[in-house]
Design a protein around this nucleic acid. Structure first.
Length: 366
RNA sequence: UGGGAUGUAGCCAAGCGGUAAGGCACCAGACUUUGACUCUGGCAUUCGCAGGUUCGAUCCCUGCCAUCCCAG
């Protein structure tokens, strides 16, 4: 009897192609689309209804069943609420990371198992391999390194990885498009997704204020010496490394160096003030190993779409570790995820709690 | 109301007789399954105002206005 797979289908090319591959390989596939935004969110509700229609059309083209799950409550609770909370506390969240952890590989996986499925599959660009030696499921980078999405998947547990398939892991993006087109999947030429899915116009600040009724009080922009440079419109509107939207005119461009939710201050500085070579990472999830017994050399990403940087990571306790970069990194931002790699394998990752400069510590010692 | 200096786009600022550099900010695209960064493009028919000289003035002259500094 063929394995029963529930394939997440967003309505886009990737997930449709992933489902198509599974069908071709003989799996018993059921397509599933998640409704993330519940009804009645108003005129600006993202087009998840049309997405579901697109997914259904693809499923029909593949001759597989298709179901829609309304997971909006879980999405709101596990993704949107933490997203808002992070900004309010002066951090910068990764909603996609939380969504993968709790919704796609959480709620969806649970529903699939309840329906008697063996695994779920998604259109993520990543690979899962079982390592005989360690007895662990490893998360590895996709063959298409440009599209690799392991950064957003580092929270997955062994159990989640064991129950998941990434059919696109070995393909390049253009191969996926070609495959989708060959199968007559209408989504083959859909535009790439972009921005935060629940903030269709890209203005997350307005979303927080208007849709979630979050009030962020205006405050002051200060320089590193504490001098007032101007007024900001609320701390949630800024993130470390940000340049545009500050409205501050100077001889050189100014960037957000840090934010302080307690004093409601946004600190501005020059480009060179953005670099940090140490950071503390919490909420750690390890994939390639059960735990770390000592310092490890790895490459690290501090944001999606960034080339990795060489570093030494040292465990502090079960869920926390410190990272020392060989070379200072630009705009290491609290709230963002840090993901550690051993070549093309994800060692693990966590959320950045703080960043700084080791040289400062050295000066204090002298 | 004596002396000196300066007035160029939202801000800073070059140009000093030949038909308005640049930077910052801002706007629009591109990139992107996070926020950012980045990249590309746009952004003064006009140089405080009014006259004059000149083929031609932001650049020279005169007056006025405004601002700043020193002296009262």
């Amino acid at each position: 009897m063929s394995k029963k797979v529930m394939a997440a289908m967003s309505g886009g090319v990737d997930s449709a192609a992933a489902a198509a591959i599974l069908v071709a390989e003989g799996f018993d596939v059921t397509g599933a689309t998640l409704r993330l935004f519940g009804a009645g969110d108003g005129e600006n509700t993202p087009a998840d209804v049309s997405d579901a229609d697109a997914a259904r059309t693809s499923a029909e083209a593949l001759g597989i069943a298709h179901v829609v799950f309304d997971v909006s409550d879980a999405f709101f609770e596990n993704v949107i609420t933490p997203f808002a909370g992070a900004y309010v506390s002066g951090k910068t969240p990764n909603p996609c990371v939380d969504c993968n952890k709790t919704v796609k590989f959480g709620v969806l996986l649970q529903k699939a198992l309840e329906l008697g499925m063996d695994t779920i599959a998604t259109g993520h660009y990543a690979r899962i391999e079982y390592d005989e030696k360690s007895g662990r499921y490893l998360l590895k980078k996709a063959a298409d390194t440009i599209k690799d999405q392991t950064y957003m998947l580092y929270t997955l547990s062994q159990d989640q990885l064991r129950r998941s398939l990434f059919p696109l892991g070995g393909l390049k993006k253009d191969e996926v498009r070609t495959l989708a087109a060959a199968r007559g999947l209408g989504s083959a030429f859909r535009k790439e997704s972009q921005d935060i899915c629940f903030v269709p116009n890209g203005d997350y600040g307005a979303f927080l204020e208007d849709a979630l009724c979050i009030k962020s009080a205006p405050g002051l922009f200060k320089d590193l010496q504490g001098r007032v440079l101007g007024a900001h419109k609320g701390i949630i509107h800024y993130t470390v490394g940000q340049r545009r939207g500050l409205g501050i005119s100077a001889d050189r461009p100014k960037y957000v160096v840090s934010k302080d939710a307690v004093t409601n201050t946004v600190v501005l500085g020059d480009e060179e003030d953005l670099y940090a070579d140490v950071m503390t990472v919490g909420d750690v999830n390890l994939i390639a190993a059960e735990h770390l017994s000592g310092p490890v050399r790895a490459t690290v990403k501090t944001r999606y779409s960034q080339k990795e940087a060489e570093a030494t990571i040292t465990p502090l306790d079960k869920n926390t570790l410190s990272v020392r970069f060989d070379k200072p990194q630009r705009a290491v931002t609290p709230g963002q995820s840090a993901v550690f790699y051993l070549d093309d394998t994800v060692l693990g990752g966590g959320k950045i709690q703080s960043a700084g400069n080791a040289s400062n510590t050295k000066q204090e010692r002298c």
